[in-house]
């Protein structure tokens, strides 16, 4: 039934992800991410950590933090709540994988297509960050993660490398508006 297979679109509505280079800045849509949220069940914190420890190689991150490993990134998103992020190509049904791993220690929700993900890379992203959102970009270290507003849109902002690399997760349905804002500001500060 291979002729039946549906072809996915990237969040900006194209068949391939968008890449924009503006001055020394690169804004790159990253569609190859499987995103799953986990929310710990009551009094199961320890069990959840035990199940996840092998995959994460450590504890779940604390508020405002993310942990990256070669396979899985973990982002704190709320009280008792995290996003687990892995390669979509390698984990096409990531939520199910996680569910079977952690069983009923946490509620597992498929979030892959809830978000559009932009990686922003440059020599100094602070001028861009200070036009985008109210976070103190200068003070952000690798792993620092905060949800805040970018042009009225609730976005997750993850520092991958101080000053030089940030990942922004925004609501997928507003991918075009978010992209417009990013590109406009990038031109503005380039």
């Amino acid at each position: 039934m291979s002729d039946q297979i549906l072809t996915p679109l990237a969040a900006l509505g194209d068949h391939s992800p968008r890449i924009e280079k503006i001055g020394s800045l690169t804004i790159e849509e990253n569609p190859d991410l499987a995103i799953t949220s986990i929310a710990v069940r009551h009094r199961r914190d320890k069990d959840l950590q035990t199940f996840l420890m092998p995959a994460l190689g450590g504890e779940l991150p604390s508020p405002g933090r993310s942990v990256f490993t070669s396979d899985v990134s973990t982002i704190w998103t709320g009280v008792g709540q995290w996003f687990l992020i892995a390669s979509y190509a390698a984990h096409p049904d990531f939520a199910r994988e996680i569910k079977s791993l952690i069983k009923d220690t946490a509620s597992v929700t498929e979030q892959t297509d809830g978000w559009v993900v932009f990686d922003i890379i440059g020599n100094n992203l602070i001028p861009l960050m200070e036009r985008l959102c109210n976070l103190n970009g200068k003070a952000m270290m690798a792993g620092d993660t905060t949800r805040c507003l970018i042009e009225h849109l609730g976005c997750l902002i993850i520092c991958r490398e101080s000053f030089r690399k940030f990942t922004i997760l925004g609501p997928r349905s507003s991918a075009a508006s978010l992209y417009h804002s990013l590109v406009k500001v990038a031109h503005n500060v380039a």
Partner: peptide
């Protein structure tokens, strides 16, 4: 109550 909420409006067409 042991209950968790996540908005998934955007995740599904």
């Amino acid at each position: 109550l042991d209950v968790q909420l996540i908005s998934t409006t955007e995740a599904w067409a």
